[in-house]
């Protein structure tokens, strides 16, 4: 029986990290693998509702941060006394914007490679929240 052999080239792989700050507190994001990156970008595109954005954030914390940094950030996110939110506000960018910027950065790094295999690398903001049509009175 034919056996086809493929050997992964490990020499060109790098796993860079990026620091980012939320209100002066520093966190380290770990570059996701291409499969993870694509999954996150697709999830963000479809995340119109707050709950969906929260799920994306959960995936980001799991896949792109070390557990200690992830739980530190998650604690702040769930702490009502902390002025930190998923969405942008007068106080500054929300976490979703930070995640998008990180994904864009990594998308630029891997862009040519991903586009060569037919995967779009344009990172878009989440779809706007759908409003229910106004009821006629």
């Amino acid at each position: 029986m034919t056996t086809l052999t493929y050997t992964t080239d490990t020499s060109r792989r790098i796993a860079p990290t990026l620091e980012f700050q939320v209100d002066g507190e520093t966190y380290v994001a770990i570059k996701p693998k291409q499969y993870t990156w694509v999954s996150l970008v697709r999830a963000i595109k479809g995340a119109a509702e707050f709950e969906e954005q929260l799920a994306v954030m959960g995936s980001f914390l799991n896949w792109c941060m070390d557990p200690e940094d992830a739980s530190r950030l998650a604690r702040r996110l769930h702490d009502p006394t902390q002025n930190i939110d998923l969405r942008d506000s007068d106080q500054g960018p929300g976490l979703m914007t930070i995640v998008l910027d990180l994904l864009k950065h990594w998308g630029r790094e891997d862009g040519q490679e991903l586009e060569a295999i037919g995967i779009a690398t344009k990172v878009e903001r989440p779809a706007p929240r759908k409003r229910a049509p106004a009821k006629k009175r």
């Binding site: 086809l4 693998k33 291409q34």
Partner: peptide, 24 residues
């Protein structure tokens, strides 16, 4: 393999592997 952060295999490798399979 594609999800494992400690594994060097990427989507690109899977693409090349699939191409090789269907070339064969």
């Amino acid at each position: 393999r594609l999800l494992d952060p400690n594994d060097a295999a990427e989507l690109r490798d899977l693409c090349l592997l699939v191409r090789a399979v269907y070339t064969q």
